[in-house]
Design a binder for these strands. Structure first.
Lengths: 107, 107
DNA sequence: CAGAATCCCCGCGGATACTG
DNA sequence: CAGTATCCGCGGGGATTCTG
């Protein structure tokens, strides 16, 4: 799973240990199921470390490994690129859609 | 579509104009359909330029825009990261799978 | 050669309900 | 609080067929 949620989790967990519910609240639209599954995959790949505290109520913290922090840096460059070219792409799309309007073929 | 083929197309088209069939042969496992669809999306986003030559047989060339070349550079950093940490991740997975073997629960 | 159209499968992921 | 289990819909994408 490269997973549609992985990147957002990496970003949300970038600054220090964070609890399950914090992630759930911090990431707009994620379901509890997908948060769990994606965290498991990230943990399996050695990108997040999971720490369970034997308390009541339970407490589980997730934090990025050094490798994941490196990944985050390169992802940041991607984000920067996307931000820089946001308008360019929006314009390209608008132009493309204008030239290829599917609904005007007979109208 | 962020599409599972987009990156490979960007890489395959990185060095000068390339024809449809060249892309098809150069990208392992891609179907003609997905090549077409993904190229359309990249074109729509202003990442590839499509040039049609009115010849018989038809000839169509695709080349990256400057913006796409910038993107390719940042993608290269991702690839580099993946390559650097390939073994680390493989080991992490093996270790995880060993610790959490699902099939040994009763065996 | 470079597509467009159609059919169809499957697995990602949402909704919901249940536990230690 | 931090999950797990089950059901199920949707759409991404493969295989195939037809054209300019």
């Amino acid at each position: 799973m490269s997973g549609k949620w992985s990147v957002q989790i990496l970003v949300a967990a970038a600054h220090g240990p964070v609890r399950f519910t914090e992630l759930e609240r911090g990431i707009e639209g994620i379901s509890r199921r997908m948060l769990t599954l994606t965290l498991r995959n990230l943990e399996r790949d050695g990108l997040v470390k999971r720490t369970v505290y034997a308390t009541v109520p339970p407490k589980v913290e997730y934090e990025l490994t050094p490798v994941a922090h490196e990944l985050n840096e390169t992802l940041q460059r991607l984000t920067d690129w996307a931000e820089r070219n946001r308008v360019y792409i929006a314009n390209a799309r608008a132009a493309y859609d204008t030239e290829h309007r599917p609904e005007l073929v007979d109208g």
